[in-house]
């Protein structure tokens, strides 16, 4: 499989926007339904925000699946939004390096919050239906740190040009395997950084961090809120993740950082298996092999709600491997319930 696709991007809604609003400081606004039921497996590719009045905003978009009042978060992205005003112009549109997969027949809704109750007033989405690529999340949850009202993560730069700052901890210990997509960086009015900023992402204990990769940036733009890696950077569970920077110039303004990543689902039954061609092994109660197939099977394993899958006229209940091995996107075991 490949990152290439022949699947067209689509957009929603047509000829209008979804209206969004936060509620108080770090209070979520109401859910806004963007799909009453997904017509096919979809992959949310990105979004565009506009409207509203705000400045220097830590803003979070939450994407959930599930019925009204039973929404379960499958994605959170935190961005630093500079200013909506005429002086800087703030519309933001991003395409995720890896889109967020959601199976068919699912209600999808969103809500937003921010550090000062303000924020963009409108949002629209680009998405794929039946994406012909496996570069899509299936069981992973889109996450960002910091979350909500948690302490804003800010790196204090070294005032000596191109000298490293101290490391700043982003995640004390990854609870699951993660895949880092990139960062949302911002430093307000930083003269001289037009000549460059480098961010190192590293792992390891405090004082013994090892650089995993380096991102290069420049004077921060009001319209550029996410700095992506060429491909997701994997970090195994149980690792401390930290960041440091070095830059041109002597300015000491703080750099606000959020880390954007996919995290493996903590509970296998919470997996979201969508349109991927999966290898299906059907076993009976004694784990005897009955059949195996290579099909574009559409299975929804939504948040510990068992679903039934019709396979060759045989109704089976989806269960988790009794050994506790989480189902992967490559193999799913189905046990016949007599």
């Amino acid at each position: 499989m490949s990152i290439l696709t022949n699947t067209p991007l689509k957009s929603i809604p047509f000829a209008t926007n979804f209206t969004i609003a936060a509620s108080g400081v770090w209070g979520f606004g109401s859910y806004v339904e963007i799909f009453s039921t997904t017509p096919n497996p979809i992959a949310i590719a990105g979004f565009q925000i506009s409207g509203g009045t705000y400045s220097n905003l830590n803003w979070e978009l939450e994407i959930s699946t599930g019925a009204v009042s039973s929404e379960v978060v499958v994605g959170t992205i935190r961005l630093y939004l500079v200013n909506s005003g005429n002086s800087v112009g703030a519309p933001v549109g991003i395409l995720l390096p890896v889109p967020l997969g959601i199976p068919t027949g699912v209600r999808v809704s969103i809500r937003v919050r921010s550090n000062n109750a303000n924020g963009p007033g409108f949002i629209s989405f680009n998405y794929y239906e039946n994406l012909s690529s496996d570069q899509v999340s299936t069981t992973e949850i889109l996450k960002s740190v910091p979350v909500g009202s948690a302490t804003v993560l800010q790196v204090t730069p070294n005032t000596t040009p191109w000298a490293n700052s101290a490391w700043l901890q982003l995640i004390a210990s990854t609870p699951q395997n993660i895949k880092i997509l990139g960062i949302s960086p911002y430093a307000d009015n930083v003269p001289g950084t037009s000549l460059g900023i480098e961010y190192d992402i590293g792992t390891g204990g405090s004082g013994s961090e090892t650089v995993l990769t380096t991102l290069r940036h420049t004077q921060v733009s009001s319209r550029f809120t996410a700095l992506w890696l060429p491909a997701p950077l994997p970090v195994a569970a149980g690792n401390r993740v930290a960041i440091r920077l070095r830059k041109a110039g002597t300015n000491a303004n703080l750099h606000t950082i959020s880390l954007i990543y996919y995290e493996d689902s903590a509970t296998p039954t919470f997996g979201r298996i969508s349109q991927l061609p999966v290898e299906v092994a059907v076993l009976d109660d004694s784990a005897n092999f009955l059949r195996i197939s290579q099909l574009p099977v559409e299975v929804a394993l939504l948040h510990d709600i068992p679903v039934q899958l019709r396979l060759s006229q045989l109704a089976v209940e989806v269960m988790v491997d009794p050994l506790g091995i989480p189902p992967s996107t490559e193999q799913i075991q189905l046990f016949i319930v007599s």
Partner: peptide, 27 residues
Amino acid sequence: TVITTLRIAALNQGNPQHQPLPHPLDN
């Protein structure tokens, strides 16, 4: 025949003026 549709928002004449496609279009 439409092969893809990209949605873009613009305000105060600002907009994301360059959109790399994470899934390059191979058709």
